[in-house]
Design a protein around this nucleic acid. Structure first.
Lengths: 207, 207
DNA sequence: AAAAATACTTAACATTGTTAATATTCCAAA
DNA sequence: TTTGGAATATTAACAATGTTAAGTATTTTT
C-alpha cells in the first residue's frame, strides 16, 4: 500500500506545516497573534483547511504547550550531576523561575491558559504526561531530601506541591503584572530568587 | 450650582448601573459573558453609551477586581483576634486558599487576568492599593513571626512573597486545571491545605 | 428664540473562531 | 479510458466581539 502510505505522509507534512507556522507566529508575535487566518496565510492554504488537520485552535495550542515542556526539560538537564538533593531542589527552582520569566508566552500556555488543558481533556490519550513527569522529578527530589533529613519531613506529594506552588506563584504573579506596582520591575528577578532562597533555607533542617 | 450637581449625580448613577450590570453578569454567567452589549441590554442603553462612562472594557474589569478585594478583605476580618503570628499566618493562608477555590472568577480578575492591571496603569491614581495593603498585612505578620523567632529569619519582603507565591501558586494551578490530571478533583482542596500545613510546619523554628 | 454643549443612538468597521455548502483533485474499478 | 466516489480544498457565510465615526435628539446657555 505505497499510495496510502504516501498520503499518510503528506497529511503529516501539512500538520507539521501548520504547527511550524503556529510556532513561528507564537514566538515572533505572541500568543494572541496566533490566529487561524494568519496560520493559513503562512502555509498558503485557506483558513478552513486548518480544520481538516486540527479539531480547533486549542488543539494547536496543546502542541505548542508540548514544545514548551520540551524546552524546560532540556534546561533541566543541568540537574544531572547534582547529588545533594537540596542543592538539586534549589537548581530546579532556579531553572523554573528563570524559564518562566524569560519565556512568559511559553509559560502561559504551559501553566496558565485554559486552552491546552481543554484540548487535553478531549484527546484519546488524555494524560498530562509532561506535567506528570515534571511533578515526578520534583517529588523524587523532595523525597530524597526528606530521607536524607535535609528538609522537614512530611507528605511528599503535599510538600512537592508546596514547592511547585511557590515557584509557579512567583512566576505567574510576575508575568501577570502583579508585582509591577509593588517592587521596581528590574528588581523582580532578584526578588523571586531571594524568595526561593529564603524558602529553601527555612525548610533546611541541617541548620 | 444645583443643576451641574444633579447632573454629576445622574452621571454617577449610570456609572453605577453599568458596574452593577457588569457584576451581575460576572457573578451569574462568568468572566467571558461580560460583554458590552449584554451590559447595555441590562441597563437599557445602547452599547456605545457604555463608552461615555468607561474608557474600555478593562476599566470595567478594574472595578470588578476591586470588589473582589473587598470580599477577601472582609473574609480576613477573622484574623483580628489571633495573637500568635504563625497561627495568623496559617489562617491567612487558609482564607486565601479557600477564597480562591470558592471564587475562581473573582480570583481570576484579581490575580491572573491582564485586563485590570492594564486599566490600572492608565489611571491618574495608578497605585495598586488593594494589592499593596494585602501584601502589607502579610509582611507585617511575617515580620512579627520572625521577631518572635517562630519562623526562619531573613528578608521580610522576600519571605512574604514566598508565602504569597505559594498560596497563589496553589490556587492558580488548581483553577487553571493543572492539578486535574495529577490528583482526583475532590482531593484538591484537602491537598492544597496539606501543602500549606507542611510549609508552615517546615518553616516553624520552634520544633 | 438661536446657538452651543450634552447625551445618546445608529450604523459600521475590523476582527475573531467556526461551519455548511460547494468545488476540485485524485485514484480505483467498470 | 471513462466513470464514480472518496479525499481534499475553497468560497461564502454566520455569529460574536470590542470599538469608533457620524449623526440625532435633548437640554442648557446665551
Amino acid at each position: 500500500m505505497g499510495i496510502t502510505e504516501r498520503k499518510e505522509k503528506q497529511k503529516l507534512e501539512i500538520r507539521k506545516m501548520i504547527l511550524d507556522a503556529s510556532m513561528k507566529l507564537f514566538i515572533e508575535e505572541g500568543y494572541e497573534n496566533v490566529t487561524i487566518r494568519k496560520i493559513a496565510d503562512i502555509i498558503e492554504y485557506s483558513p478552513t483547511t486548518v480544520y481538516l488537520y486540527f479539531k480547533d485552535k486549542d488543539e494547536i495550542f496543546y502542541h505548542l504547550h508540548e514544545q514548551g515542556f520540551a524546552r524546560l526539560t532540556e534546561i533541566n538537564q543541568n540537574l544531572a550531576g547534582i547529588d545533594n538533593p537540596l542543592m538539586r531542589l534549589y537548581k530546579m527552582g532556579e531553572n523554573y523561575l528563570h524559564f518562566g520569566l524569560e519565556n512568559p508566552e511559553y509559560y502561559d500556555i504551559m501553566f496558565i491558559q485554559h486552552g491546552p488543558m481543554k484540548a487535553l481533556m478531549e484527546r484519546e490519550d488524555c494524560n498530562w504526561h509532561y506535567g506528570d513527569s515534571a511533578l515526578n522529578l520534583l517529588k523524587q527530589t523532595v523525597n530524597e531530601a526528606m530521607e536524607n533529613g535535609v528538609i522537614y519531613k512530611g507528605n511528599v506529594e503535599a510538600a512537592s506541591m508546596a514547592v511547585w506552588g511557590m515557584v509557579h506563584g512567583l512566576v505567574s504573579l510576575a508575568i501577570r503584572e502583579r508585582f509591577d506596582k509593588l517592587i521596581p520591575k528590574e528588581e523582580i528577578p532578584a526578588m523571586v530568587n531571594k524568595s526561593l532562597n529564603w524558602f529553601l533555607s527555612a525548610v533546611d533542617k541541617r541548620s
